[in-house]
Design a protein around this nucleic acid. Sequence first.
DNA 1: AATTTTCTCAACCGCCCTTGA
DNA 2: GTCAAGGGCGGTTGAGAAAAT
Length: 214
Amino acid sequence: MMEKEDSTMRKGPWTEEEDAQLVFYVNLFGDRRWDFIAKVSGLKRTGKSCRLRWVNYLHPGLKRGKMTPHEERLVLQLHSKWGNRWSRIARKIPGRTDNEIKNYWRTHMRKKAQDQKKKSIAQSSSSSSSSSSTKGPSFYDTGGDNKSKTGAEEVYSMDEIWKDIELCEESSSFTPLAWDFPTDDSLWAVDEEEPKMLIAHQYDSFPFDNHMTG
DNA sequence: AATTTTCTCAACCGCCCTTGA
DNA sequence: GTCAAGGGCGGTTGAGAAAAT
């Protein structure tokens, strides 16, 4: 918490040298003691910054490039279960980071919301029974505080998007399950220790409990 | 071809949780 | 039991790239 963040601390994009230096020291000391690594490496970065760089960019298990359709469906499915619990979702998708999934969600769900909005406008213009516009939570968040900034998302409720998605999935033999993935890398290993009671508490009837806990 | 708008994604911020003294 | 430090997470920002006009 009280990291030495004096004026000499660097911010902004990482250089190749910094990356190489960080990789070297993480290989040396492991990817846990970030504050320590930040200090001994000589990088003028905070421990947090080092950790973020490693987790989101330098970790060898990371996949690069576009999400596969399988992964996309997985994100949708898991988000419908867990909401904006990005790190938890990421743990179920090997090689993808919470940041990546978060960004994906923002951009692609915004698009989806806009498409849906267009659809609903087209429909409501023919039959004046508008239903969703101007109410409901932000497209971006199924549960948290609604802090949407852009305009488009303010007019289409997330609930309705999900209804649509569910309809699509029902009609298209949808079977991607996170636990089908091999969890090859420790970073992406399923958090089996995930407190079952907590899940049960948060989601009264969690349908995948058997799978989740072995 | 130039300008404007939109999209993408790396990185930061602030809060909360965990851990250890 | 308390407190401080470190780590983790979700939300947000901003620069550069791509697309549209």
